[in-house]
Amino acid sequence: MPTLPSLGLRNRTTRNGRAPDRTPLASTTPSPLSASVVDCAVYIDGERLGGRWTHEEALDEVRRRGTGFVWIGLHEPDEHQINGIAETFELHELAVEDAVHAHQRPKLERYGDTLFMVLKTVRYVANRTFTANSEIVESGELMAFVGRDFVITVRHGKHAGLGRVRRELEQTPEQMILGPAAVLHGIADHVVDTYLEVTETIQDDIDRIEAEVFALRTKVGAEQIYLMKREVLELRRAVMPLAKPLQRLAEGYTPAVPEQVRSYFRNVDDHLTTVSERVASFDELLTTLVDATLAKITLQQNTDMRKISAWVAIISTPTMIAGVYGMNFEIMPETDWKFGYPVALLVMLIACVVLFKIFRRNKWL
């Protein structure tokens, strides 16, 4: 396969038709491929061969034997690091570009005999307090190139390592003997299981928020619920688009997935359906909680306004009486009466007490 063109500058020209200036601003030494390779192994008859392998040596060994496959794990490789592998395994340049730059939706594409699958990985981040910058669901990406005799995984993000998946698969040779499709199933199953774990934890958070919303004194505001709703949306972006790729793998989209592996993908798709239903219910419940919180705030404001109005009415009564006798008219019989002052105070007190009892009976106070 010819050398891949530069992924960042492929066939670009400036507006005046000239080729862009590719003179580097400063001399940099490209990182070696080994810096991004997490593991490279050869599997024959479901068993891992010992020794350390380069990607060329591993592929040569598999093709010399005429059986088995290579599994290479990469973590955030750059363009220079992945180009050598892309040439050796004849990977399509568009898929390679997606694998390097990431930020892709979950999808499944076929380039000749090679499958390219993108999955979103998620991790729950515990927070003691919620702020506008809090992150509950941290997402990453996982790409897989699957060919007749190789699997190349490219991981972006600090979480969702595949070391445990590799160890579990190596302990089940009867599954590994099914080839690269079995590895792809193991990866997809691991990712969907992670979705289930995250949704269970989010369910606990939503239950706690729901209890606080309907408590006598609300400790949670609408902002916190909106934050949770935003993170559920992040999870939804990872989960929902994955349904179609899994269905295509289960339905025989490509001969690279043998019949005995398709049933495994159907099982993963069933688990994903469970996750999708949970995420949809989270979204609906959080919308309901937002409405309930806003309604409770409105009710609380109405209650406060009634209390304020009641106290204003109580205070205005003695103020009115005092205002009448403060007008300094000469002909006011009560002003010459020796009991006028105490009677006026008594009338003020009785009026205030009567109004207080009326408002208390009507639950305004």
Rank of each mutant, 00 (worst) to 15 (best):
204 D>G: 10
314 I>N: 04
216 L>A: 07
116 F>I: 08
332 M>I: 14
363 K>A: 09
82 I>F: 00
84 G>L: 05
8 G>F: 09
5 P>N: 12
285 L>Y: 06
314 I>A: 03
51 G>E: 07
3 T>C: 04
166 R>C: 02
180 P>T: 07
329 F>K: 11
83 N>E: 15
205 D>S: 15
117 M>A: 15
27 S>W: 09
187 I>L: 06
12 R>N: 10
247 Q>I: 09
127 N>G: 08
123 R>E: 13
62 V>H: 10
248 R>S: 08
281 S>E: 07
303 T>N: 11
250 A>H: 06
153 T>H: 03
122 V>Q: 05
84 G>A: 13
241 P>I: 09
301 Q>D: 10
111 Y>L: 07
120 K>Y: 08
250 A>S: 15
36 S>M: 03
203 Q>N: 15
51 G>L: 03
188 A>L: 03
223 E>G: 07
182 A>T: 00
159 H>D: 11
343 V>T: 11
296 K>W: 05
100 V>L: 05
17 G>W: 09
169 L>P: 00
189 D>F: 04
293 T>L: 10
136 I>K: 12
267 N>A: 13
290 V>T: 11
342 P>G: 02
242 L>T: 01
236 R>L: 02
296 K>D: 03
313 A>I: 03
171 Q>R: 12
49 L>Q: 07
112 G>F: 04
296 K>R: 13
295 A>M: 09
21 D>T: 05
250 A>V: 08
